[in-house]
Design a protein around this nucleic acid. Structure first.
Length: 886
RNA sequence: GGGCGCAUAGCUCAGCGGUAGAGCGCUGCUCUUACAAAGCAGAUGUCGGCGGUUCAAAUCCGUCUGUGCCCACCA
């Protein structure tokens, strides 16, 4: 209450010098309340169309697509992070006058979404088969409607400046056309084919998945050694997957292996089956491993499949799609794990287990969606022949058409594209783009383009498989613009300017976009620059996960501290390509920063800061004014350079320190004296303060859009900072002023230190005499006295302390005796440090080798250091001498 | 098995050849007319170990230890 009354009084005092413009009597509370500010602002930006992009605009385009979030749920902190970076970049570009398109949308996320909806159904005790394909897909669309709404609500909350009117979904009519078009084209170019191969099969999802959807983990298995054959002709194989032996069609040994050479070409009996299988020689076998003999199961192991191909072996499938044994006999109908122990038991009964099973840790593939152990399975699937596409995708980066930030990441990119296997694109799912191929009654196969009628008639039916979800997201940079139509948007906004995404989907997504973009768009890669960011982690650098309990819902933090605070924290942690730890304390810190900006702007408004009119010429400005303008322009240049290099942490930090340490802690404090004096000096400072805040708010806007909008419009009375011009460096620099203010800061800090050490309360007024002769400080005497709470030296003034500093002397009259011991201790410590510095620098400056080889500026620097240390010694000695005895 | 990276203040991280930095945390004093979500002052590091290059090394090279990630058809 008391504070509120005091504030009212202050506001009254400033009535005598009102600011011009519509905001001269601002109604800003003393604390920034994000919740009251953020909500309304976003919808007004949307309503005014700031985020929409016009393909007909004469401005240069700047395009970036959203990495489409899966419709499986809600956004997490990682999305908030990614969106903050993209939003910051696009907001700056918009302010710089580009026709800016941030393309929004979502991904249907085939297998992931199907799984989520199947789980929903399971709660009702149903499976998708109870509904049938059509009804199930309908059900997924319903889910999409709900989940998608939630996601767009979160994006609004974050402040994402996306072109909502252009929002797309990978299962849209238009995007589905794009999918069909590219499929048909690839098919006709023989870059898509159908073939029976060993694929990664998930026995729970009941679909094939691609190599990168398999996650390998070390699992504890058991290696058992089994004797095949009888007597001298027997051979012992080692395996972790005994159940697949029912499908063995050979035993392989290394061609050079002396132990088994005599057996190659012979046949032995496969236990439990009565079948006879050949022993073949194959380079793939490692004679050092196990017994040096491998059982070969072409239908259930990728390596064995290849051995089978080389030796023309049959493939016998013994596991069905659920990974249940199909081979007739005692094991029929058993699950793979059940069968494994049953078969080992049966073999033991026959005395064929020669070495007891031993623990063996090996890498086993799991479905990235449901964690079920992958079953390699021979099956008929659709493939993209990646060779030529991947070559082009690699070359585009190699020849510099596409740049990857940070550059070290391009190594990983090359490792990947240069070793790419063909891509299995068919999925045995219901949710997704159905493959546009029709089969005829006589085994015909017709690929149907988007403008063609599918064949009809007796016996024709469409392929039931759908496409891998990454097939459609690979088209995202141009399908969202209306391709395959040659729309104005395609012409204008392709290629995209940049892509911002996590390094974790470099292979999944970026490589696919590169391949498809170059292929579909006549050799033009989809973007010029790829900016890869890290993963959000908790405050200890641990991975965030629901099961570990350290996952954070970004909305909770946005509710508590505001979106700006969350965004600023994330941006401030965003060093290129590395993971970003974030903790609630840090978000609080950012909220404090927002509040600080809020209050500094309140101060400016209460004191009539203005942005109207030309900036006064340098001759009419005080040293403080020139200093802060000089610094401001340096910071503009610095922040701009950081933006061009996607150094979000650096630019945020630079702004944080400039605003808080320089503008708020010094310039604003100095200006209090100026404003109190009034006159032309105050008039000029009001304009300068307005300028500095105006520019600082613009610079901060891309990262902290809400609070800057509220304050900037209050300060300037203009429409919106969203469409304000991005600041440019005017080139104004004033070394002399920077130095002069630096001296003021040094003096003030030194005297404050003394006051603090002497146990003086911060507010306590102290009579003092200032001798500033011979320095540039006289114009700052009032400010110095005010900052240090120094009163004029009255009649009974007796100096009890004399502080020589920066060539000036400050004499203080402390009513009681000063703590001489404390001060002496302090000064002695400083003196020792200074003497050490002199010793070190002197040693360098007398070192012949150093003088001969070090560059001039380094030598000069050392000289300066030595001189500074020497003058410190002089100063401190004088202070020590001036201390009263006792 | 390959490849990449990291070890700097209590915590999380910048710096990457010329006096050790930031945020948070910590200590002390304060409601000093924008802000206690604040102000002022302060403490804190043989920059993982060992060698080497250099006038000069947290920074470059080698090596050891610890640690993280990615890739791989280890039966």
């Amino acid at each position: 209450m008391a504070r509120a009354r005091r504030l009212a009084a202050v506001t009254d005092n400033t009535q005598q010098s009102p600011a011009s413009g519509p905001n001269s009597t601002p109604e800003l509370p003393t604390q920034y309340a994000p919740a009251e500010v953020e909500g309304q602002l976003y919808e007004s930006w949307v309503a005014r169309g700031y985020f929409e992009a016009d393909a007909k605009s004469p401005k240069d385009p700047f395009t970036v697509v959203i990495p489409p979030p899966n419709v499986t749920g809600s956004l997490h902190l990682g999305h908030a992070f990614e969106h903050t970076l993209i939003d910051a970049v696009t907001r700056r570009k918009r302010m710089q006058g580009f026709e800016t398109l941030w393309q929004p949308g979502m991904d249907h996320a085939g297998i992931a979404t199907q799984n989520v909806v199947e789980r929903e159904l399971a709660k009702e005790g149903k499976s998708r088969h109870d509904l049938g394909r059509e009804a199930f897909v309908e059900r997924v669309w319903q889910w999409k409607a709900e989940s998608g709404g939630q996601i767009s609500g979160q994006m609004r909350r974050l402040g994402d400046g996306v072109a909502w009117s252009r929002e797309r979904f990978t299962m849209d009519e238009g995007l589905s056309q794009a999918v069909q078009t590219i499929f048909k084209r690839l098919y006709d170019d023989e870059l898509i084919y159908r073939a029976e191969r060993i694929i990664n099969w998930c026995p729970r999802c009941l679909t094939a998945i691609s190599d990168i959807e398999v996650e390998y983990q070390d699992d504890d298995g058991e290696l058992v050694s089994i004797r095949y054959g009888e007597g001298d002709d027997s051979i012992v194989v080692a395996t972790t997957r005994a159940e697949t032996m029912l499908g063995d069609t050979a035993v392989a040994v290394h061609p050079e292996d002396e132990r088994y050479r005599h057996l190659v070409g012979t046949e032995i009996e496969l236990p439990l089956t009565g079948r006879r299988i050949p022993i073949v020689a194959d380079e793939h076998v490692d004679p050092e491993f196990g017994t040096g003999a491998v059982k070969v199961t072409p239908a259930h192991d990728p390596n064995d499949f290849e051995i089978g191909q080389r030796h023309d072996l049959p493939s016998i499938t013994v596991l069905d799609e659920h990974a249940v044994i199909t081979a007739h006999g005692p094991f029929l109908g058993q699950d793979r794990l059940e069968a494994r122990s049953a078969i080992v038991a049966a073999l033991r009964a026959e005395g064929r287990i020669v070495a007891e099973k031993r623990p063996y840790t090996h890498s086993v593939g799991h479905c990235s969606r449901c964690k079920t152990t992958i079953e390699p399975r021979l099956s008929m699937q659709w493939w993209v022949k990646t060779g030529p596409l991947a070559k082009a995708a690699g070359d585009a980066v190699r020849d510099g058409q596409v740049k990857i930030h940070p550059e070290e990441m391009s190594k990983r990119y090359f490792d990947w594209v240069d070793n790419l296997h063909d891509w299995c694109i068919s999925r045995q799912l219901w949710w997704g783009h159905r493959i546009p191929v029709w089969y005829g009654p006589d085994g015909e196969m017709v690929c149907v383009g988007p403008d063609e009628e599918p064949p009809s008639g007796e016996g024709w039916h469409q392929e039931t498989d759908v496409l891998d979800t990454w097939f459609s997201s690979g088209l995202w940079p141009f399908s969202t613009l209306g391709w395959p139509e040659r729309t104005e948007s395609v012409e204008r906004f392709y290629p995209n300017s940049i892509l911002v995404t996590g390094y974790d989907i470099l292979f999944f997504w970026v490589v696919r976009m590169m391949m498809f973009g170059i292929y579909a768009m006549d050799g033009t890669p989809p973007f010029h620059t790829v900016v890869l960011h890290g993963m959000v982690r908790d405050q200890f650098g641990k991975k965030m996960s629901k099961s570990f309990g350290n996952a954070v819902n970004p909305l909770d933090w946005m509710d508590a501290y505001g979106s700006d605070a969350v965004r600023f924290t994330l941006a401030r942690g965003a060093n290129p390509g590395v993971d970003v730890p974030i903790g609630e304390d840090w978000v609080q810190g950012s909220r404090n920063f927002a509040n600080k900006i809020w209050n500094a702007t309140r101060f400016a408004l209460m004191n009539g800061a203005t942005v109207e009119g030309e900036l006064p010429p340098a001759e009419r400005l005080s040293a403080a004014d020139r200093w802060i303008l000089s610094r401001l322009n340096s910071v503009v240049a610095e922040v701009d350079a950081y933006y061009e290099d996607y150094q979000f942490a650096k630019l945020s930090d630079a702004l944080f320190h400039f605003a808080w340490d320089e503008v708020f802690d010094w310039y604003v404090e100095l200006s209090k004296t100026t404003f109190a004096k009034g006159g032309a000096g105050a008039e000029a400072s009001r304009r300068v303060l307005g300028e500095v805040l105006d520019t600082t708010l613009r610079l901060l806007h891309p990262v902290m859009p809400f609070v800057t909008e509220k304050l900037w419009t209050a300060l300037t009375g203009r429409e919106s900072v969203v469409i304000a011009e991005w600041p440019t460096d005017s080139g104004f620099r004033d070394q002399a002023a920077e130095q002069e203010i630096g001296t003021v800061q040094q003096l003030v800090t030194e005297v404050r230190r003394f006051r603090s050490d002497q146990g003086l309360q911060p507010g306590q007024k102290v009579p003092a005499r200032l001798d500033l002769a011979g320095t540039a400080l006289p114009p700052h005497e009032d400010a110095i006295r005010s900052l240090l709470r120094l009163q004029p030296a009255g009649d009974g003034f007796t100096a009890t302390a004399a502080l020589p500093v920066v060539g000036a002397t400050v004499e203080l009259d402390l009513s009681g005796a000063i703590d001489v011991a404390a001060e002496r201790k302090r000064l002695t410590k400083d003196l020792t440090a200074a003497e050490k510095e002199v010793a070190q620098t002197s040693a360098k400056l007398t070192n012949e080798a150093f003088l001969a080889k070090a560059p001039d500026h380094v030598v000069e620097k050392i000289r300066t250091r030595k001189a500074a240390a020497e003058s410190d010694i002089e100063r401190i000695s004088a202070q020590l001498a001036a201390l009263p005895q006792g």
